[in-house]
Every structure is written in C-alpha cells, then in structure tokens.
C-alpha cells in the first residue's frame, strides 16, 4: 500500500512535469506547474520531510504560482501572438535538435551512474546532529542545522535574497514610464474574506515560526507564509506596497543585519564568528529567526510587487501607433 502510494505519487509528479513541458498553451503549463508544486509538497511528506512540505505548500503551490500567473497575464494583456510565433520556432529547421537530446540523455545517464556507483558516506551526519543537538539551543534538528551547525548557509542565503531584491528595485521602470493602473474594483466578498483571513495568516505564520524550535517549522516557512499573506492582501486590492513602503525598506535588510551583528558581536567575547555563547543560544536563535521571518516575508513580497505593472507594454503599443 505504502510503496504503491509512492509509486503513483512519483508518476503523477512526472506526469504534471510532462504537462508543463509539452503544453502549447502557456496558461495550461502554468496551472500544471501549480499542480506540480502541490504534488511536490506531498512527495516531501513521503520523504519524511515535513519542513520541506510546509515550505513547498506556501511557496511552490502558493507564491510561485501567483508569480507565474501574473507573468502570463502580463503577456496576454498585450497579445498572445508571441506564443503563436513560438510554435513556428518549434518547427523551424534552424533549431538543432542535438543539443537538447544530448543534454537530456547525457544528464540522465550521468545521474543514474552517480546513483548506481555512489561512494559510501564516511561520516554519518544524522548521528552527528543527534549527538550535538543538546548544545544547539533548539530541539528541532533542522532548525539546529540551519541556525547553529550550518548558519553560514542561512546568513549567505539571506544575503542572496537581499541582493535579489536590490536588483529588482534597480530594474524598476522610471516613474514617468509607469502608467498608474486604476485602483482595482472593490469586491465586497473578497474584501471580507481577506480581512478575516489576514489575522489567521499572521497567526499561523507566527505559530510556524515559534513551532520551529521543537517541531517542523521555522523562519523560512514563517517568512513564506508572511509573504503569501502580503501578496494576498495586495491582490485583493489593498495597496500594501504603498502603505508599507518605508517599513519595507527597513524590514528588507533587518534580518541580515541582525544576524550579522549577532555573528560579529560574539567575536568581541573572543568566540569564533557565528557561534553563540553558552546558555543564550536558544534565545538568540529565536530572536534571529523572528527577524529573518520578517525580512524573508518582506523580501519575497517586494519581489512580487516590484514587478513592472501590466501597463509595461502599453508604452510599446503606443509606440506602434506612432509609426
């Protein structure tokens, strides 16, 4: 039963991926991609990784899908001629087939070989984590790995996110280039739902953050939920990005700065970079995580709201009329 479930789930995952790859209709590919994210969350569950399932449920099935739908809407707000031209490209004799085929088959064979002839692991990481978990300040092993044993990764990750959002801001069109969209239509039912759902979302985000110290959850999942809540609000017609512009700027860098400050200030006490003093590890980790949650949520939200508005191609059309 158990294995049958996994086999069917794996095949379904492959099927949705094939659906994404082979759809002529771009929107169909995107909906298939949302289904793919949901199935991937189930796969993480079956791989005994509820943390990943939590992140995937918020990101794969939620945020990425919204981003993709928004991008397709951006294209179709102008014309889908490009999509039709794309089909022409598909059958163009100019496009060589050898590159895709070789890369596909080569990667497949190489990776199968890597799995077949894998070296035996010389150290057992799970055992090392289990032996040291008592000193880490938290009970949940994944949080311990993320914020204590391998906190370099997390620090650099938040730095990468920060760089991404700075690049996104730099790519923003100049003010006069942007055509202000009319405020979205007031929809009382959606408005009501969002107003009631927002406290629940913030509460769940905080719960997931807090739960991270002893069970699946933590800063990343909490941040993803916070981001999804903000995106939800923005979509429902609340101008979150305009209300929160100053808070946004402050919050973006907060997680990185706090993390770096803690990491450096322990060096004053003569300890190595990115370690925690005894006895305070738990509190410091929770503090850093709370700031990280805020930052990740705000960063992911601004990566959504920094998108050029749909009028981006209106200028394009206007130019066409001029000719």
């Amino acid at each position: 039963m158990n294995l049958a479930f996994d086999i069917v789930l794996g095949l379904a995952l492959l099927l949705t991926a094939l659906g994404v790859f082979s759809s002529k209709d771009l929107f169909r590919a995107v909906v298939m991609f949302i289904a793919f994210g949901l199935l991937l969350a189930l796969v993480w569950v079956r791989l005994d990784a509820p943390d990943l399932a939590l992140a995937e449920a918020a990101i794969g099935a939620g945020l990425t899908g919204v981003l993709m739908i928004d991008a397709v809407a951006h294209l179709s707000a102008n014309t889908l001629q490009n999509d039709q031209r794309d089909d022409q490209y598909d059958h163009s004799p100019k496009r060589p087939l050898w590159l895709p085929v070789i890369s596909c088959v080569g990667l497949f064979v190489l990776l199968l070989g890597a799995i077949r002839f894998r070296p035996e692991a010389s150290v057992s990481l799970p055992d090392m984590v289990r032996d040291n978990i008592a000193e880490s300040g938290v009970e949940h092993p994944i949080t311990a790995v993320l914020l204590n044993f391998r906190s370099y990764d997390t620090l650099l990750e938040i730095a990468v996110l920060l760089v991404a959002v700075v690049v996104a801001m730099a790519l923003k069109p100049a003010a006069e280039d942007r055509v202000h969209q009319p405020p979205p239509a007031h929809d009382p039912i959606l408005h009501g739902l969002t107003a009631r759902l927002l406290p629940a979302m913030l509460l769940v985000g905080m719960y997931v953050l807090w739960a991270g110290s002893y069970m699946p959850g933590g800063a990343f999942q909490g941040g993803a939920i916070l981001a999804a809540a903000l995106v939800f609000l923005q979509l429902a017609g609340f101008a979150v990005d305009r209300y929160a512009a100053s808070l946004l700027r402050l919050g973006l860098a907060l997680g990185f700065l706090v993390f770096l400050t803690v990491a450096v200030s322990v060096m004053i006490g003569g300890r190595p970079f990115l370690t925690y003093p005894e006895g305070f590890a738990g509190q410091l980790i929770f503090f850093i995580e709370a700031m990280l949650t805020l930052s990740i949520g705000l960063i992911l939200f601004s990566l959504f709201s920094q998108n050029p508005p749909h009028s981006g191609a209106v200028g394009h059309q206007g130019a066409n009329h001029d000719q």
Partner: peptide
C-alpha cells in the same frame, strides 16, 4: 536533517531567483 535543511534554504533561494528572473523577463 542536513540535506533537508540545505534544500529548505534552496527552496527559498529558488523562489526569489524565479521572482527576479520574471522581473527581468517582464522588463
């Protein structure tokens, strides 16, 4: 837990990279 933690980092980086790629694409 170690690869799971790494992949958790990876998922969040992947979504931000996707968002950035979409911004560049739309621009």
């Amino acid at each position: 837990p170690v690869p799971q933690a790494l992949v958790l980092t990876g998922i969040v980086v992947a979504v931000s990279a996707t968002a950035l790629a979409l911004i560049i694409f739309r621009r």
